[in-house]
Design a protein around this nucleic acid. Structure first.
Lengths: 199, 199
DNA sequence: GTCTATAGCGGGATAGAC
DNA sequence: GTCTATCCCGCTATAGAC
């Protein structure tokens, strides 16, 4: 892992773009963060849009393997859910800005990001998960529930608290440090909550 | 309700700001949407920042009464939760961009918005809700759970699917129309899911 | 109160030396 | 490959007539 100029730019750009979005981010700021000159950005990435898309692709590259590793296993559904939450929430903890970035950018400009998104091998995972849920219902292991709704529930419970950290900690009237303790506990807490609801 | 110029500006600005955020929004675009001249914006609101803050305050004014009306009742907790979800999800359906806006802006610039947020009478509601939950646990009506976690869960389940509509509908591989049907069903779905988990 | 015209500058992008 | 210098457009904001 040599720290090439290209990598330094990509890392700096990732940080700034995730924090401020494509409109708020300044090329100068990215150059400063990378410790290089502004015009060198244009040498490696033609323009801001190109750099932005590179950042996005680079960032998703980290996300998908994390998902795959968990959902692909052949454990029973409830264990899979626990494993998923443990790993997924942990992943988000180390990339806390990522969910918000993805949500914001897909909202503002669906085509731009969803194209890149759809290239990823996310489809099979999703199908697999849905059929797991349906089978589990057939066998009477869990209560009947629309698989789509269950998936939405699990992802909502995992992701939203990170996305809404400032609002939620203000709303609950607790400090950020205390809120982060709550978040850490959610790996187990949410698994319990979901499984309780299913059995 | 006379449609004064000031109101026309505020409405137009709300629409644009919610959609594009303070960086992406253009004063020209807001003027066009309001059907007036660009410099008239500066006549009514000194500068972009002032206009932006006015929009935010104006928009929160709608949100808080909606919360208050539900959480203030004295029904039993599970009914309260059902009522909350029915009304809150309905509210979001008519203001689908609002949650995302609040989340984005409090993330990017916590001081700016959380100051305005903290002026609202949100505190008492929150305390009331927490003590309701604790009492309900004491009476053995619901399983023990950290009130903060339960509140986070309920809000996550309500809000996140709207915030992440483009990502989720792409991830689940269903169209927007079909996804909206899922969302509508969530008023009952989520209540069921939460109450199942608690009893 | 509402307009036209324009100032002023921030920031993306390019030219060209080294 | 990396830099300095600069162009130039877009956008906020203001001046000033009506």
């Amino acid at each position: 892992m040599v720290n090439t100029t290209q990598e330094k730019i990509l890392n700096a750009a990732t940080e700034i773009f995730l924090l401020k979005g494509p409109d708020g981010a300044r090329m100068q700021e990215i150059a400063d963060a990378a410790g290089i000159n502004k015009s060198l950005l244009h040498y490696y990435f033609r323009d801001k849009e190109t750099l932005y898309l590179s950042v996005f692709k680079n960032v998703l590259k980290d996300l998908v393997p994390a998902l795959t590793s968990v959902l692909g296993s052949d454990k029973p559904l409830t264990e899979k859910i626990s494993d998923f939450l443990e790993l997924y929430i942990g992943f988000i903890q180390t990339n806390p800005l990522l969910p918000h970035f993805i949500v914001t950018e897909t909202t503002r400009n669906p085509e731009r990001l969803l194209m890149a998104f759809s290239q990823l091998p996310r489809q099979s995972l999703n199908d697999r998960l849905k059929s797991d849920i349906l089978k589990s219902i057939e066998r009477g292991e869990i209560k009947p529930i629309d698989p789509n709704q269950l998936i939405i529930n699990i992802i909502s419970l995992s992701v939203f608290p990170f996305i809404a950290r400032p609002v939620m900690s203000s709303f609950l009237d607790i400090g950020f440090a205390e809120f982060d303790i709550l978040l850490e506990k959610r790996k187990k807490e949410v698994a319990q909550f979901v499984i309780n609801s299913l059995k």
